[in-house]
């Protein structure tokens, strides 16, 4: 039996997870760095948050799973992509624990971990993956040992677009800005016309954000539309673009399954739109809830296990981090199809 402990800290979520080789999740805890309304999380402060919480989280996860460090076979951590300082704080802790406990380390690509966690939880075999979060927006399909990127954002990520709009309208970042936009959007009725930007399989959100920002800051326009209407229109427009590109990738690759992962993937309106899209093409959609959708330690542990089971480990001198680490750079050693 192999037990892997995973460490995630690429953005404002710090997560520790313990996973067994059969996919059982023994522990999966998370602590989120939440900033006041109107502010985003800065790299330096986020790293500080991770450093101050990581040891107590490791202890808690061991207690919760009823294990001691002796039961752990391998430590997996996020190598990238993400914010530099938070990634580094976590990597330093992992190196320390590895030497203290004499355990091997496996470096994991964050995006791959999201995909593999989604496949583990839902049982989807070979889905088109819509990976949507605060830092990434990609439409991915597997072929010949690589997760290949069919479409992606050419400027900011969709979650970043939502988060930044949340700052403009000054709504709380607790539990997450995207969740609060989703709740406001439920009360919206009127659709504001916003740009709809798809370039082939690629999407762009920068222009939409500036456009809706200018409406939100204009007192005259705000007489026509409520803040709820703006949230509603923003969601309707950006999610339509995502579902459209995902559908185009499905049609091009002849796939029938779709899996949504990443923080924005747990938005219920997005999941509903994906369901409507696949029901029109007799496909099947898979969605996961916030425990596994939002960044977490268990997904890093599971992806780490998949690499570790083929006896691949990362030597201590190579346990660095990188902000730029593309999904299609990783050799998928654990899939044979």
């Amino acid at each position: 039996m192999v037990i892997v402990m995973g460490f995630e800290g690429s953005a404002n979520k710090l997560g520790i997870g313990i996973v067994k080789d059969d996919g059982t999740i023994l522990s999966n805890i998370r602590h989120t760095y939440i900033t006041p309304p109107g502010e985003g999380f800065l790299p330096k402060d986020t790293a500080e948050h991770h450093r101050s919480w990581i040891i107590s989280l490791v202890k808690r996860s061991l207690t919760e799973s009823g294990l001691t460090h002796k039961d752990i076979d391998c430590l997996a951590y996020t190598k990238g992509p993400g914010m530099g300082p938070p990634l580094r704080s976590v990597a330093v802790t992992v190196r320390m624990l590895s030497q203290l406990w004499k355990k091997p380390i496996v470096a994991v690509n964050h995006c791959i971990a999201h995909i593999e966690m989604g496949r583990l939880i839902t049982g989807a075999k070979n889905p088109t993956v819509l990976y949507v979060s605060g830092g990434n927006t990609q439409v991915i399909s597997y072929s010949l040992k690589k997760y290949r990127i069919f479409g992606e954002t050419i400027d900011i990520a969709v979650g970043n677009c939502l988060d930044r709009f949340a700052r403009v309208i000054n709504i709380p970042n607790d539990p997450s800005p995207g969740y609060n936009i989703e709740q406001l959007a439920k009360k919206g009725k009127n659709l504001v016309e916003l740009p709809y930007v798809t370039k082939g399989m690629d999407v762009s959100f920068g222009g939409i954000l500036s456009n809706i920002e200018s409406i939100a800051k204009n007192p005259v326009r705000l007489k026509e539309y409520t803040v709820e209407d703006l949230c509603y229109s923003l969601q309707e427009t950006v999610f339509s673009m995502l579902v459209e590109t995902a559908e185009r990738a499905m049609a091009h690759c002849g796939q029938t399954e779709i899996l949504a992962v990443g923080g924005v993937g747990c938005n219920e309106r997005l999941q509903q739109m994906i369901n409507q899209m696949v029901s029109q093409r007799n496909g099947q959609s898979f969605a996961i809830d916030e425990r596994y959708c939002i960044d977490n330690g268990a997904m890093i542990a599971w992806a780490g296990y998949l690499i570790f089971k083929n006896n691949i480990t990362t030597p201590l001198c190579e346990t660095s981090t990188t902000q730029r680490f593309r999904t299609d750079q990783v050799e998928v050693t654990w899939r044979d199809d």
Binding site: V243, I274, Q276, M277
Partner: peptide, 14 residues
């Protein structure tokens, strides 16, 4: 065909 996932106004425009 009408994309049911898209807002009707947005869908017919596109």
């Amino acid at each position: 065909f009408v994309k049911t996932y898209r807002h009707p106004t947005l869908d017919s425009k596109i």
